[in-house]
Design a protein around this nucleic acid. Sequence first.
DNA 1: CGTATAAGTCTACAAGTGTATACCTGAAGA
DNA 2: TCTTCAGGTATACACTTGTAGACTTATACG
Lengths: 197, 197
Amino acid sequence: MARTQSRPARQRNAAATRAAILQSARRAFAKAGYDGAGVREIAGGAGVTAMLVNRYFGSKERLFAEAVAESIATTSVLGPQITKSGASGRQIAAVLIGITKAEDTPLEGFQIMLRSASSARAARIARKLIEQHHQKLIAAALEGSLAAQRAGVMLALIAGFQLMRQVLELPALAKADPGALVKVLGPVFDRLLAATR
Amino acid sequence: MARTQSRPARQRNAAATRAAILQSARRAFAKAGYDGAGVREIAGGAGVTAMLVNRYFGSKERLFAEAVAESIATTSVLGPQITKSGASGRQIAAVLIGITKAEDTPLEGFQIMLRSASSARAARIARKLIEQHHQKLIAAALEGSLAAQRAGVMLALIAGFQLMRQVLELPALAKADPGALVKVLGPVFDRLLAATR
DNA sequence: CGTATAAGTCTACAAGTGTATACCTGAAGA
DNA sequence: TCTTCAGGTATACACTTGTAGACTTATACG
């Protein structure tokens, strides 16, 4: 009766608990990266003991793989925006600027990747998922030559922008007026959308 | 006489030892990031005990700050290229592509930043240095309005490109023909160099 | 030679990591 | 009501991390 009274104390439900752990893991990995997020912290975020995490997922590494897979699948905001036929650079820029504003972001998959880049295993997992889920889709939607390279540079720009704005919080990008950023970023995306001459 | 016979046993030279530690630290941080590189590992790379590191630098955090500062100062390849008056996007792109080719790179400072982004303390240190050493210089060299934002986006593009090409090794960028990459990246840099309309 | 002092190491500790084993507990079936 | 077993916790261990204090050793100077 020590713990039951302080919390709503979720019913004993394996599936729900598993889901809660996974969600907590996604948030923690996005915030601190693979090495930075501890199993106890993740467990705490789900209102659960550390050991239950290992009980359900086997190990931290397997938990990470599952969390990344889910996050990437959910990170579908920017993809459609870019791959739809009539997209303008200004639109893409506006969306990107919007979703890199708050702490919590739909670009969770990218966030995890950025913060886990130091871990070799994490990087390998991330590369595979990025390549298959984003790079190929964008490249396919681009017309003209060097589509793969242009898609790659777009992803680089997105990742770098997020890194500087959200992770490093470089003032020039983090505190800038969104309108001004659109003015700067829009034409850049336009260049990448346009077929290379 | 237990230890003296096994090694060349560098002469006792504070300055040289300090420099050796710093170099080892730069390499270790670039490879594994702030959290990933251990003090013992860094010390070992300099042929020295872990405690000597703290003796000379006070703490790991301060060692990191100094290592980043030195790396950033050394990372002077791109800065002059961008800030010189007659620079073209194509030239900048060519230089960037050249120095993001091999594993070892003159962009060590960026590399460290990328791999340490997960650590909050490391990010704070890196932000300060990046801001003062790169962002302000580039912004000052740019003509027209929104110079700070344009400089920030340039840095984002550089960091993102390096991340995707060197750290994640996205095939479209890592294995691409340099000439093709110049064709894609050059106009993008041109856009950022040109005054915003 | 003798000694002062800088250069460097040893041992240890407190905190944090992922994980294994043993344990408890609450709800459902008989 | 009693039993059963999945859902969950507590304790502990082996290891690693950054760092502190006491210790040793080599070099330069008198």
